[in-house]
């Protein structure tokens, strides 16, 4: 019951998101959407996922989007032309996705494939094999250590990517000693590149 109410809230905020043209409100509303998602995960007993969703989806990503907004414009360009083709495509994709859910096992079904595979092993043996009472931690850190290492590498790569594109503007990201040694021409060239990067981003956002 609570889950259905939360899903309705999520759907409502998603529709509202599409209608809005003020990007500041859009960012705030997507944070609200994430918070509803976190509440939904909590209702479904996925505490760790809810925790992550609340921290990343509702918290950090909202702030990151806001700081991006500070660099670009705050309102979306309005275009009132109704395009039929994309609408049709969206409806077809949505219909296929909904059709796909008919084949999924019911929530909590004990015979679902997901409960027949390794889950039983984790629940029964993880206390003896790994130790921590929180099975999620055992799975993430020990049974699936490779996965987690990959994820950490992805986060690392993302940060490196952002640094490579945005990191060196106005000597912001550099220690002052190194800034002093940079040649004037280099600085000018970098500024040019950065301006280009910013304007590119503007184009993609609007």
């Amino acid at each position: 019951m609570i889950a259905i109410a939360l899903l309705l809230f999520m759907a409502a905020s998603a529709f509202w998101l599409v209608r809005l043209r003020n990007l500041f409100a859009v960012v705030m509303l997507s944070g609200v959407y994430s918070l509803f998602a976190a509440a939904l995960y909590l209702v479904m007993d996925a505490v760790d996922v809810a925790f992550t969703e609340a921290a990343v989806g509702a918290g950090i990503s909202t702030v990151l989007m806001l700081s991006t907004l500070a660099l670009t414009s705050r309102t979306e360009k309005s275009h009132n032309k109704l395009s039929v083709m994309p609408l049709l495509l969206v409806f077809i994709t949505g219909g296929v996705l909904v059709y796909g859910t008919f084949d999924m096992p019911r929530y909590g079904d004990i015979n679902a494939p997901i409960h027949q595979h390794v889950a039983n092993h984790y629940i029964e043996k993880s206390a003896a094999e790994v130790g921590p009472p929180n099975i999620v931690t055992s799975i993430l850190a020990s049974y699936r250590g490779f996965d987690t290492l990959g994820e950490t590498a992805v986060v690392f790569t993302a940060a490196i990517g952002v640094l490579a594109i945005l990191g060196r503007v106005k000597g912001q990201g550099m220690s002052t000693s190194r800034v002093a040694y940079r040649r004037k021409e280099d600085v000018e060239e970098e500024n040019k590149e950065d301006d280009k990067a910013v304007s590119d981003k503007k184009e993609t956002t609007s």
């Binding site: 990151l64 945005l166 912001q172």
Partner: peptide
Amino acid sequence: TIFFAFAGHG
């Protein structure tokens, strides 16, 4: 890093 890289552009 990501936040300060973005925020440092203002």
